[in-house]
Every structure is written in C-alpha cells, then in structure tokens.
Design a binder for these strands. Structure first.
Lengths: 215, 215
DNA sequence: ACGTATACGGTACGGTTGTATCAACATTGT
DNA sequence: ACAATGTTGATACAACCGTACCGTATACGT
C-alpha cells in the first residue's frame, strides 16, 4: 500500500465518520472531536488531514455531492424521453436509503444556515436547485414540443412546482412525518398529471416498478 | 405602571430580542448573552425572567406561534367557501413580511433539529403540519362534494401536494432563491388547477386581489 | 414603618469548541 | 546511514456556552 493511497484511505474514513455523526446527531454535533472519536483516531489526526473544520466540511460535502450526482447520472442512463428523465429525477429527489438521507439532511441543514449567513450562501453546494430548475424546465419544454405534455401547462411553472413539492416532501420524509413510499406516490401522481399518456412500458419501466420496495 | 405589567413588558422585550437575533443571525446565534445584548439588558436579567434557555425559547416560540395562528384566524374570517379558505391558508404559507419570515425560519430550524433529536420531535410546535393537512383535506373534500373541485382528484393527495409545495416554496423564499411574489403566483396556479371555476368575485376577492402588493 | 419578596448587576465555574504547540515515531530519498 | 519529510500523539489555550452564586437596591404587603 502506497503512502498516498494510505493517505487517501485515511481521508475517506474521516469524511465517512463526518457523515455518520451528522446522520445520527445532526450537523451541530459534527465537532472535530466527535469525528475523531467516530473514526477511531486521535483529534490531531483529523487536524492533520484536514487543516481546519471548514476544510473538513467542505471536502465531505463535495464528496457526497459528487456521489449523489453520479448516482443520478447512472439512473439517467438510457432515459431519453422527458417523462423517463423526470421519473429518474424524482426517484432521487426523496431520501430513501441511508446515503441519500445523509445527503438531504446535509443539504437542508446548510440551506437553513445559508438563510442567515450570506458567506455560506455563495457555496457551490447551494447552486443545485437553480441548475435543476433549468434542467427540468428544458425537459418539460421538450415534452410540450413533442406533444407529450398536457395542454395549457407552462413548463417553467410546472418545473418550479414539481421541484418545490419534491423539496417539501423530502423534508417531510427526513422528519419522519411521511414515508418515502408516500412521497414518491405523491410525486408520481403529480407526474401523471403532466403526462396524460402512460409511461413507456418496457424500456425504462424498472425505475417505476420496484420503487419503494427496497428499504 | 404595575409591577406585573412591568414584568410582562420585560418578558415581551426579551422575547422580541430573541426573534431579532434569530432572524438576523440564525437560531444557533441565539445565546443568552446575545439576547441580553440585543435587548439592552444584563445577562442576569434574562436569567431572571426566563430561568433557563429552554424556557426562554419555549415561550418565545409559543408566543410567535400564537401570533401567527391569530393572523391566520383573522384572514380566515368571512372565508366560507373552500376556495376562499384555501386562498387564505396559502397567503400565510409563504414568508412575506419580517414577522412571518421569523416564524418560518424558526419553524424550519426546529424541524431540521428534530430530524436528529427525537426529544424535540415531541414538541407541540411541530404538530402543525398534521393538523393543517387534515384541515386542508377536509376543505377539499367539501369542495368536491359541492362540485367545485376539478373531477378525478383525490382530496387528500391534493392536500398533501399543496402543503408540500407551499413548504418547499417557503424555504426557497427564506433562502432568497425565490421572491414571495413568485411563490404566491405558483401557489395560485396550483389552486387554479384544483378549482376550475373562477374565485368568488366580490365577497372575499380582496384576499386575492391585492396579494403580493403590500410589502 | 418595617420586614420580605422581587428586581437587578457583576462575576465566577465547569464544560466544550476550534486551533496551536511540543514531541516522538515511521518512512522515504539519496 | 542519515537527513528530511510525513504521521501520529498528548496537551495547552483562548473563546464561548449555560448556569450558579453573591451581593445590593427597590417596591410591596401588612
């Protein structure tokens, strides 16, 4: 094992500890000491690999974001028709497994912090909604041009509505007020309203079929 | 001025200071010392009127909740038809003035905390969504029975969707990502979808007419 | 009028935080 | 082999937190 490999392993273990602490006890409980204890290393070690706490959080969040982006990209593979794309997007918009739960919790926690800290508001972490909105709007516009969208709907309005609904449901799921199954069902009904014609039968159907089944 | 009057004034001033600090710097910045400084009193005084910090937060949140409930009740006065009721509910569902902004920020902050602290999840502060959901569901059910609701819609599904959308938009407005006007416009379009017939013209029209106009 | 409860100020205490300092040890390049 | 560099530990430090303690003054009931 190379020394730089070892270094990378250490850094990975520590960022994983950050996510565990945050998922279990919340963002405010993520202290340098708590992370060190969770990772089973000394405080000094955490300091060594991530000079400052801000640096530690930054890389942890970046890695998690990268992972979730990759997850969505994978799910998006082969989804060509706008409805299939929307299906994939909404499937990731709600926290189901522990991993996506950590992501949503981290994201929401930071979003709340950014409300009163304009320094944090500049974080690239928080640009995702804008990008997602234009992306979804484009998909719905394409669907309208293809004649797949229900008549009389404004793509941008529907995009904003759908994303806001997904965000609201995501928080509700986080808070344990709603089950992931309920949330995805609600989102599906919203999607069914936008697309009068049934979803594509065989090609990409798996994404909708086994949803809500795996814990 | 009576002593108990004075006491009440003091307590009011201090809880107002709590809200100002929270609105300006976030919930995490609400410390006993910061509140004392904001209110222009000594730390000991804050301790005197609210034994513990938990007690201080509890009464502050209760008072704010009571105020917002009263606000909604006032807006609900004279709104009899389900659509008018929904109009009133949605008008309060988005932070517009500074007061409602404080309320939404407080609520969201606590909701995020409650995700990882089941002790906090029992707080009555967090029962509002459930109550609101059954209330809205009841309104939509009544609208359906009256034939005012668009056909083929499930009242409960639409209620959950509408509230989740309002919650998502509320956070977006808090974060400065969306203006209150945009948010209310989106919510109105959602309402227009549920109620095919136009809103009541004269009787309660003011609630919809001057919306988004007053700062 | 007087004793007592309330109102208030200053300050101290124990705990936790992020970060810095001082050492010891291992690994690597030459 | 040795100097240099990276790795790990223990501990210290200044700042902050909520709360407790010790006073004094003011206002009230009787």
């Amino acid at each position: 094992m190379n020394r730089t490999d070892n270094r990378e392993t250490r850094r990975h273990d520590i960022t994983e500890a950050v996510l565990r602490v945050m998922t279990r006890s919340g963002l405010h409980a993520v202290t340098m000491r708590a992370v060190a204890a969770e990772a089973g290393v000394s405080l000094r070690l955490v300091q060594h690999y991530f000079e400052t706490k801000q640096h530690l959080m930054h890389t942890t969040l970046n890695r998690l974001t990268e992972e979730m982006t990759q997850r969505l990209r994978t799910r998006l593979t082969g989804a060509h028709r706008p409805r299939d794309v929307m299906e994939a997007v909404l499937a990731e918009a709600v926290p189901t497994d522990e991993r996506s739960r950590a992501f949503h919790l981290a994201y929401t926690s930071y979003a709340v912090l950014a409300v009163t800290d304009e320094t944090l508001a500049a974080h690239p972490f928080l640009n995702a909604p804008d990008a997602m909105e234009t992306f979804v709007t484009r998909q719905l516009t394409r669907a309208r041009d293809d004649g797949d969208l229900a008549p009389g709907l404004d793509p941008r309005t529907e995009a904003v509505t759908l994303l806001a609904t997904a965000a609201g449901l995501g928080v509700a799921v986080l808070a344990g007020q709603r089950t992931p199954q309920e949330a995805t069902a609600i989102l599906h009904s919203g999607l069914a309203r936008l697309f009068p014609n049934p979803a594509s039968p065989g090609e990409q159907g798996e994404a909708t079929a086994e949803e809500g089944g795996h814990k």
